[in-house]
Nucleic acid binder design. Structure first.
Lengths: 228, 228
DNA sequence: TAGATTGTTAATCGATTAACAATC
DNA sequence: TAGATTGTTAATCGATTAACAATC
């Protein structure tokens, strides 16, 4: 009855993308510092202090004027807010070069990401292990998802196989896909986040091209990439 | 004298990031189609037609009302605009899991990216080959850059080594770094483009967390990731 | 011709940045 | 206390989206 419903005001994507960099910095100073200010974080990351303050506010943390924020609390808040405190099981689909690299990535543990198995269609890959994780045939994906309760999938198949593989993942019960292929997956009811190497390289390559042609570099020499 | 200098109006980053997806689609239809409209591209990629039109206009292409754009011309324009028609030599620094995967990436050739060698500090890796590319000691980077003329570096070292490695690359003559580490490199005079896996995973993870907690999904089930 | 599409200008939307009172 | 810092509101900036005349 108290019509004071907050519409879950969704967090801006740029903010979400900056949060991990704060967390990384804060984890590094956890032993040596008790308090930290936005000013400090901002200058370390070359950002605007107000922006940092607004970003942090989304986590619900409350700072003290003149003092700043408690490092330990901020770390905790960020981890909780990002969902990095609970371990999340994931299945990787496509055990090629990139897939193998991701399975072996040490940093994922700190983000609550645990890739427990891989699936592939190539007979030569099936039955083996990558960094201690089994590689299973694609047909076993539904059973695997059912058995492990994994809801997250990491998609690292070749471009041509992407849409079909994503469909299979959805059918198997996967509800979120971390998509490393350049394909815009057409899927309703599945949360998709793209890691688009082509897009990133496009920015770099275009600017390099202008640079080569004697394009006027910024005063600071050259500007840096976006997508912070 | 004719004071009609166009200040090289810089291309918006979101536009640059979308261009590769147009190109990918167009390459796929090169044989079967002569003309293509923004409407068509937009619906295939789930974008706004006006946005596609504006994006394409940056390449200098001119379309025909009622007809659209010539596929072959558009492909050519996009490739030139992105700088993907000239081969660019690159040195990879950090021959770990991710580095090895990138060296073997078949798609880079179509983007004019040629990783010709890798550098690393680990003795066990030095002297070997990865996908036919030699792995050299880090000390040889300056000589390597001088000899090959490579200006682009791909940075895939562990987080702790990132800043130092980047400095070494700069000193060796590298002018642009494709940065796969989560570290915000502090560098003047070097073009840096970040591929930030942490940032991407943060978006996914945060949304998954809301989803778990019974957060209201969109009408379409669940929305998809940004950074298109 | 009528309808689809381009190119372009205007309106909207959302994020960043600036301004400033409150506070320890 | 004075100065630094937070929290918040307002102004700015830039990208997306809408509107519409020109065109084949």
């Amino acid at each position: 009855m108290g019509g004071d419903f907050k519409p879950a005001e969704s967090v801006p994507v740029p903010t979400l993308r900056r949060l991990p960099s704060y967390l990384r910095l804060l984890r590094g100073m956890k032993g040596s510092r008790v308090w930290v200010s936005c000013t400090h974080l901002a200058s370390a990351l070359d950002l605007d202090p107000t922006q940092v303050r607004k970003d942090l506010a989304y986590t619900g943390v409350i700072g003290r004027p003149k003092i700043g924020y408690q490092v330990s609390e901020l770390v905790e808040r960020l981890e909780t807010f990002l969902g990095w405190q609970t371990v999340r099981e994931a299945i990787l689909v496509g055990a090629g070069n990139l897939g193998r690299a991701l399975i072996g990535f040490p940093g994922f543990a700190r983000k609550g990401l645990n890739i427990i198995a891989a699936c592939d269609v190539e007979a030569a890959r099936i039955g083996g292990e990558i960094h201690g994780r089994p590689v299973l045939p694609m047909e076993q994906l539904p059973a695997l998802v059912a058995r492990t309760g994994a809801r997250l999938g990491v998609l690292t198949v070749p471009e041509q196989a992407a849409q079909q593989a994503a469909q299979a993942m959805h059918a198997a019960g996967i509800t979120a896909i971390w998509n490393f292929t350049p394909v815009r997956l057409v899927m309703a009811g599945v949360l998709v986040e793209d890691v688009d190497l082509s897009a990133s390289f496009a920015v770099l390559s275009h600017r390099l091209t202008r640079q080569d042609r004697g394009g006027a570099p910024t005063s600071s020499g050259v500007s840096r990439g976006e997508q912070r």
